[in-house]
Simulated scan of single mutants.
Amino acid sequence: MSLSIIGNGFIGGFVSNKLNFLGIKHFLYTSKSFNLCDENTWKSLSTKTTQVFIAAGSMSSDENELQSVNHRPIKLLCKYLEDIGVKKVVFLSSGAVYGDYPYDTHPVIECKPSSIYGLSKLNAENSLLSSWGGALNIVRLYFTYGPHQKKPRLIPNLIDRIQKKEPILINNDGGPKITLNHVDDVSQHLINTFIVNNHETIIQNLASPFNISIKDLATQLATYIGTKPIFKFNNINEPNHTSLPFPDMWPKSGLLEDIFHAL
């Protein structure tokens, strides 16, 4: 296996560090050395590459940017990867593709994204499924937290709002509920289950059993900080983002201790 990781952000960078620790050689490409939106940079990809982990993507609130980065390059990228001899793609997607479900999601149910981000990821998945001829692992992540995480990701954003005494939007029932995952657990399963072993075409949720409402999470975070959160009820209930747990994906320590140690 000759592995290339496209994207050295929060997930891609952590996976790369763990691969280095395990002694697994790979190439890591930043957004400057391999830009999904710039075909000229694709030539930087090693021609020895047989497997690609696509961890790059946008979390922008701008619809055009989301589609331009997360979706539109995929078909051309598939052709380029096939031309240089790549045999397998692992694609980092999101549980946001499911949309609003009152129960834990799983890959068998219909995807009905309720956000432009979720739609951009689902469009990318569909492009991969229709354009890629080799092995394909689509991995749908939920809310991941860990070392050096920054806004706009959920946990740093909540802590920032609590400390600044800014209101946190919640549903009437305290939701939405979310599934939380530590990046160390996520990266370990990405490597063991998908990058190293699985050479079939599959779609899989990667999620822990940690489901919690935004109200409960913010309250516990505020208590840990030594203050109280301010809540504001949403006019429109936000959908839950929870999943059936991935086998053996158990957190290593208590949630709050884990979060603050990670940050």
Rank of each mutant, 00 (worst) to 15 (best):
residue 1 M to Y: 08
residue 4 S to Y: 01
residue 4 S to T: 02
residue 6 I to G: 00
residue 8 N to C: 07
residue 11 I to A: 04
residue 12 G to V: 00
residue 12 G to E: 03
residue 14 F to V: 01
residue 18 K to I: 08
residue 19 L to M: 11
residue 27 F to W: 03
residue 29 Y to E: 05
residue 30 T to H: 10
residue 33 S to K: 07
residue 33 S to P: 06
residue 34 F to Y: 13
residue 36 L to P: 06
residue 37 C to Q: 15
residue 42 W to T: 00
residue 47 T to L: 13
residue 47 T to P: 11
residue 48 K to W: 07
residue 49 T to L: 06
residue 49 T to K: 00
residue 54 I to T: 00
residue 54 I to V: 06
residue 57 G to T: 05
residue 58 S to K: 06
residue 59 M to N: 13
residue 60 S to A: 02
residue 63 E to P: 06
residue 65 E to K: 08
residue 70 N to I: 03
residue 71 H to P: 04
residue 76 L to E: 14
residue 79 K to G: 14
residue 81 L to Y: 02
residue 87 K to Q: 05
residue 93 S to P: 06
residue 94 S to A: 10
residue 97 V to Y: 06
residue 97 V to G: 04
residue 101 Y to W: 13
residue 105 T to P: 00
residue 106 H to Y: 10
residue 107 P to C: 11
residue 107 P to Q: 12
residue 107 P to G: 05
residue 109 I to C: 11
residue 110 E to W: 08
residue 111 C to L: 05
residue 113 P to M: 04
residue 114 S to C: 14
residue 114 S to P: 08
residue 116 I to F: 15
residue 120 S to H: 01
residue 121 K to L: 01
residue 123 N to K: 13
residue 124 A to P: 03
residue 125 E to T: 01
residue 126 N to V: 07
residue 127 S to R: 11
residue 128 L to W: 07
residue 129 L to F: 12
residue 130 S to Y: 07
residue 132 W to R: 01
residue 136 L to C: 03
residue 138 I to G: 00
residue 140 R to Q: 05
residue 141 L to P: 09
residue 142 Y to V: 01
residue 142 Y to F: 15
residue 144 T to R: 05
residue 147 P to T: 07
residue 148 H to D: 13
residue 150 K to C: 15
residue 153 R to S: 11
residue 154 L to S: 10
residue 162 I to R: 07
residue 162 I to W: 06
residue 163 Q to L: 12
residue 164 K to F: 09
residue 166 E to N: 13
residue 169 L to W: 08
residue 171 N to V: 03
residue 171 N to P: 07
residue 172 N to I: 12
residue 175 G to L: 12
residue 176 P to L: 09
residue 178 I to S: 02
residue 180 L to I: 08
residue 181 N to W: 02
residue 183 V to W: 02
residue 187 S to I: 02
residue 193 T to E: 13
residue 193 T to L: 10
residue 198 N to E: 11
residue 201 T to R: 05
residue 202 I to Q: 10
residue 202 I to F: 09
residue 203 I to V: 14
residue 205 N to H: 10
residue 206 L to I: 02
residue 210 F to G: 04
residue 211 N to H: 14
residue 211 N to L: 09
residue 213 S to T: 07
residue 214 I to Q: 04
residue 218 A to L: 11
residue 218 A to W: 08
residue 220 Q to R: 05
residue 227 T to N: 05
residue 228 K to N: 14
residue 229 P to S: 04
residue 229 P to W: 00
residue 231 F to Q: 03
residue 231 F to P: 03
residue 232 K to C: 12
residue 233 F to D: 08
residue 249 M to Q: 11
residue 259 I to N: 03
residue 261 H to G: 09
residue 261 H to K: 15
